[in-house]
Design a protein around this nucleic acid. Structure first.
Lengths: 195, 195
DNA sequence: CCAAAACATTGAACTAGGACAAGAAATACA
DNA sequence: TGTATTTCTTGTCCTAGTTCAATGTTTTGG
């Protein structure tokens, strides 16, 4: 069970790659261990990495000028985290943070190494495009849920998708992800517990 | 001013293409006029097109089992609309609709023609990947706004980004896009008018 | 092992926004 | 051109969720 087995399996889910292609992929990745509570990306900085999580948990969040903090993503095992600073709202300073919540083992692309990968093995373009589609699809579903569902429904659905997270991260982070206050999430949970 | 000038300009914004490459792109697109109030994608159907809007306005929306309707996107001139049915929530039937709100002139990819484009001119992979990044970024910003901003702020920001839409589409569609009720949007507008 | 900090719970008072209903205005279309 | 339909506004009442504050619980790290 080497350190690349998870990423190789994950990337092969939608496109099949040869052993040689996977070797090229792996050679472009940098393995890195990051202790918990490390802020990997601060506001204003350009994000110069794309990280695949082998182990651990990371949060990505925005803070607006009024201090509103919203968690946009939890990245756990076998998922990717990065910031795409293409904001259409370029004038409006929306600051993205990326922070480890647990000790993490990561595989990291720099922009250059990803480019190099595509040059040496262009078929990865397709796989990463599909990953991007999935990401967009999940984000759209979340947007829909945020608008159309009650706090209770959102939390139950969250439990479905991230059954391990309530044991792993502080509850107020989950509240922030769901777009509700920490206190109200506590009340929702009390209600669930009663039934 | 031929029918391809807009798409060629739009696609050249982030990657530069030769005349020959653009010719290949154009040859893979089908021009289609669609009258207003046409539902181009019904619930349950697989979306077999990707449409670039030359002229007109389209809405994409979800309806959940409780009848909640949420507009996910307005596609106006020079933007793309399609459905990516990669829903992680595959069990949950989230139905997507795509409907023209005005008479439209479109350029349309089928999945096959897009594949053919990538085969004949692989550099388009990159351009479409960038478009996808932008799309994801916009959706993330919307998610953040939906969670963190008041109805008033959301509407003002909407006016900033889509100044022409209030004159073009019914107000309750805008309310649905913003995730507020039509009545409340009306009250927000009354408040704005008073100042 | 203990103190400090972070986190979670609960309650009470409040508010942004929703649901409903009824009328006014605008649009569509015969 | 007039009628029907859709859209918009405004008011009243209502509720899901917020804010604040106090208390209890767990985690952290020295």
């Amino acid at each position: 069970m080497d350190r690349y087995s998870q990423i190789n399996e994950s990337i092969s889910r939608y496109v099949t790659f040869s052993k040689e292609e996977l070797d090229i992929l792996n050679s472009q990745l940098e393995y890195r261990e990051v202790p918990k509570k490390t802020i990997m990306l601060h506001e204003g900085e350009m994000c110069n990495f794309e990280a695949f999580v082998i182990k651990g948990c990371i949060r990505k969040y925005y803070i607006d000028s009024n201090g509103h903090e919203v968690i946009l993503q939890f990245a756990i095992e076998n998922s990717w985290v990065s910031d795409i600073s293409f904001s259409i709202y370029e004038d409006r300073p929306s600051h993205t943070f990326i922070e480890t919540l647990e000790d993490c083992e990561l595989l990291i692309f720099s922009p250059e190494s990803k480019e190099e990968l595509f040059k040496q093995a262009p078929r990865f373009e397709r796989a990463f495009r599909i990953l991007l589609y999935r990401n967009l699809s999940v984000t759209q579903d979340r947007l829909f849920n945020t608008i159309a569902k009650t706090a209770m429904d959102k939390y139950l659905e969250f439990l479905d998708h991230y059954p391990s997270l309530p044991q792993r991260v502080a509850q107020h982070y989950i509240a922030s992800y769901l777009g509700i206050s920490a206190e109200f999430l506590s009340k929702v949970r009390a209600k669930i517990a009663k039934n």
